[in-house]
Design a protein around this nucleic acid. Sequence first.
DNA 1: CCGAACAACTTGTATATACAACTAAATTCA
DNA 2: TGAATTTAGTTGTATATACAAGTTGTTCGG
Lengths: 241, 241
Amino acid sequence: MENSSGQKKFATIKDYILSQVETAAWPEHSRIPSENELATQFSVSRMTARRALQELTEQGVLYRTQGVGSFVASPKSQSSLLEIRNIADEIQHRGHFHKAELVQLTSLPCPGVVATALGLSRNAPVFFSLIVHYENQQPLQLEARYVNPQQVPDYLAQDFVLQTPHEYLSAVAPLTDAEHIVEAVLPDELTRQHLKIPASEPCLRLTRRTFSRGGAVSFAYLTSAGSRYRLGGHLSIKPKT
Amino acid sequence: MENSSGQKKFATIKDYILSQVETAAWPEHSRIPSENELATQFSVSRMTARRALQELTEQGVLYRTQGVGSFVASPKSQSSLLEIRNIADEIQHRGHFHKAELVQLTSLPCPGVVATALGLSRNAPVFFSLIVHYENQQPLQLEARYVNPQQVPDYLAQDFVLQTPHEYLSAVAPLTDAEHIVEAVLPDELTRQHLKIPASEPCLRLTRRTFSRGGAVSFAYLTSAGSRYRLGGHLSIKPKT
DNA sequence: CCGAACAACTTGTATATACAACTAAATTCA
DNA sequence: TGAATTTAGTTGTATATACAAGTTGTTCGG
């Protein structure tokens, strides 16, 4: 099943193609050998050659069009990805104790920014929750969240000490998309108080907008003390588009 | 080739499995029918059933172990991904003008932190570059980068005004992995000067470690003024692990 | 000259088959 | 009892084949 080099056959073909792409022997958007040509060249079946092409397509190295051929994708806009996990998972993953304190849970007239984000009318009623997340009794993150009442009518009836808004929303309106903005800001008075930090301490603010099948679901500001929180992770590279 | 519902057969099986998983009829980590069982149940070949399982595994819905079976992955740790693009691309994508100013380019004894990150000995020679990135003549980001001399011996001979380190490194040592940490910090004196910001302005600091086939390539601090820079993006959701 | 039909080639889906690699449980044997 | 072996079941790799579906260029007919 393996060839002389101890590799799987489809892997050999993948390596070959990758080397051609990386050395730019096969330039961007150029057509590469067809399944049948590769099969002949490497003395394998078409299905095996196909698998190599298939996997490289999933990895974003190639793109293919039925009836036309396989082409080299543009490796230009290679971008890395940063994983964003929810705070409760992260704390528990570190083996620490997570606690949520509910400060406010109410309906209020929708501010302009939020109206735009959620596709509501200005001053239309919107649900709002303010929660402080603790890691081992130390305040870590302030979560200010606006929720679309049309999508999640029972939001105000939940107990967010037992279940985080993220968990509840995931269950009620499985999210299909999310938008994030990460910024460094100085804390406002409210944040200062709840996180118990000095006014000069920089904070990491994650602005997060989530969508479900039906449209925009929630809009949240997740603010953490810079000295206590970092956003981090490890991810492999994916060339895109 | 298609069944009565006008769907591809492997898609029918995927939908079936997904429905079982979503309704929790098949709970987390439970074993699901084998390839052969699904093949019989849906009157398709094993290869077709296999494809359904395969694709769901790639999507993170299932995990499989050779010799054991296929299992439902935990949808819990659903995490979103934030795209991190390099600064020059981002500026140009906004239609603005990018300029790089080289402050320093030298070899120096490796600091402890960097030695650990790059797998070098402490005080062993390491290449270092300090570059200010401008957007429309305004300083936006300070890039302090340490480079592994074994991986990139010609680093010091480059002209980083013409080509950013990121571009050069991508060409010389195609990166296979990257690690990121995002933090909110107050600027040190050096950063303050080069970005021309007050000491009280919070900064977004991206610590980035990149790897190529041969191992760790570079370790960089990318610091930007909070008022001028945000990390943002839109990405669809992927369940993981 | 133009359009329709055709031919050649591409990728996409599906089947049937074989064997390899691996795991876990049952069985055998000392 | 306990360790080695067998066995049954699972996923993984690979092949050969067939036809569907889509694209592109050529040929043919008007």
